[in-house]
Design a protein around this nucleic acid. Sequence first.
DNA 1: TTGTAGGCGTTATCAC
DNA 2: GTGATAACGCCTACAA
Lengths: 368, 368
Amino acid sequence: MPTARRQISQKLIADEAGVSQATVSLVLSGRNVSSDNTRKRILEAAERLKYRPNLLVQGIQTGKTKMIGVMMPPYDFFWSEILYGIHDVLAAADHVPIMLWTSHRGPSPRKRNAPDGNELEQIHRLIDRRVDGVILWPPFASLFSDHVHEFSSRELPIVTIDHELPAEFRADFVGSEDHVGGRLVADYLLSLGHRRFGHIAGSSVATWAVQRRQSFDETVARIPNAKFKTLEAPPGDDYTLAIEQARALLALPDRPTAIFAATDLYAKQVYRAAAELGLRVPQDLSVVGYADDDFAEEMWPALTTVRQPAYEMGRKAAEIVLGRSTGKLSQKVPIKARLPVQLITRESAAAPPPSSGNGNGRAKSKSP
Amino acid sequence: MPTARRQISQKLIADEAGVSQATVSLVLSGRNVSSDNTRKRILEAAERLKYRPNLLVQGIQTGKTKMIGVMMPPYDFFWSEILYGIHDVLAAADHVPIMLWTSHRGPSPRKRNAPDGNELEQIHRLIDRRVDGVILWPPFASLFSDHVHEFSSRELPIVTIDHELPAEFRADFVGSEDHVGGRLVADYLLSLGHRRFGHIAGSSVATWAVQRRQSFDETVARIPNAKFKTLEAPPGDDYTLAIEQARALLALPDRPTAIFAATDLYAKQVYRAAAELGLRVPQDLSVVGYADDDFAEEMWPALTTVRQPAYEMGRKAAEIVLGRSTGKLSQKVPIKARLPVQLITRESAAAPPPSSGNGNGRAKSKSP
DNA sequence: TTGTAGGCGTTATCAC
DNA sequence: GTGATAACGCCTACAA
């Protein structure tokens, strides 16, 4: 009968097997080719006692906790997919994610996405538990980069997703080809005959947003008679703002015939604003989103959008933190991984209405 | 210049402040009203050195890691809401969730939800890190209840959501009024005039499914001339099966005029099956879902469904584990918390078609 | 191959 | 109030 509420330790196994605790440690960790005899006794005792190693102790001993801080909420389909990717890679490597975030809720009318002022505390919760590295989602990385110094000053591996941190942080990055995505959309809309564009760009401090915007704008700007109007959002809650921006774009004197929304969530708001004005998508207004969220193909009409390989992005991010943590990834200069994107053509974009006074369909698009 | 790669410890602070390490411990943990003098010196030194406590050590000392195992994926909107609830309560209590699960992906055509055979390993990852308690989602709790013994035998607090474990596990439970939800749906459909029902019930081993089914069936069975056909799913992947079940129900000789889907996901499949047959919802077929997932109101037509207070359920679950872990919750008998549900009436249910040969609208529903 | 002993960064129990 | 000193459970030389 073991004393009181004591854990089942290697010491216990040692006693059972008649060896020293050190030997148990060696055998259980497989670092030692002990004699088959003692080895067997130890293994059996461990089995019998249902021994389980204490990774806390291992952590303070080895400096590795096999825990990764993941500051990212299950915000929507896209981010959940990324979480799946992270999870799978970590689990396969015998690591676990500690998932934290700093806003109370997610998107959709029922949710909010406001910072709650506890960013520093959350960071400290990770540091105090000595995670081996962290993965950060864009709003956090962009809004609270000061706090991120808490990580970098302790030389914790950092990977950001969809937002590049300044070089001083020495953070790795995983994203998708945002600089390609904007161009894909622009080319597509131009080829349909559109010449007046609106763009709901998202936060001006988020690199994913900036790059989508730039590549879109640049591509459109090359066409002589094309016009475009871009609306940015201030850092912070951009979702509720999107509906107002959509209304603003549609109220323009020279109303755009196509709107590029930098996320599918924004696109949804564009649909609403269009409906308010009795504009039909795509007959009166073409809309293109970004991300290929799960609801995109069920929107009505189904949303044309740019698909990012979310699950793979999550995997990649996890692989990088693990690589940094274990030292297997030695490349000094921060990694900037960009996975390929793909235009998913559905039903929300078509040729502009004939009366629109600019481009009017593929056939005539070359004769201004 | 501190030696090598040593952590900033209480010992260091002690040296800086000219006191013993023990005193530092007392002051930092606020367990002691030291003289204002030393207290100040210690606090300043800690600040200067950017000291951060090591919760790993604290964990092996106190037996509390302030980490909660959350075996639940960001499966969809509903489960993400629950995760938000859990997260918020844990964070407020200075705890963190370790989120793990055992299937590779979630729902939707792009996802799967099959067990991956790593359930035991995942459980051990939590135990090895000495979490203070665990929260389990239904598929896990119902499919792998054997493994759950790993927790209960170590007397770890267990809270299951939406699925009640047998008494031997001494597990607490949080759910919603599934026994009310089924009745709400039945009453509503009956009042519309329906008399022939189909029910896609989900797994027969999940208590949420069983209770929704029972309360639905019982309510319908009270009506003399009402018929109903219920299809269950075997344990495991029920999502891909739902479309087939929907087809089967609609192929019945006496085709149901209303189908109650035990989840919104199933309801979506019913829409598909109906579309395949050219049946219109709700004119030819009424459909009611369950959960009020985020896509429910955007389905076409908008889905009538039963809303569960997901976020609150998550909060409740976290409050219970915390209560158990800290001992503040002393009630011996397992808690069974059921939060209220609410019928959300939208557009997917209406009176049955006149030609349906059974009930035909509210007006005549009382004269058979 | 196996045992001894020191240390990891705390908390906890005593004395002083 | 404060300081030794012993745990906590394990890893890691270093010895034997």
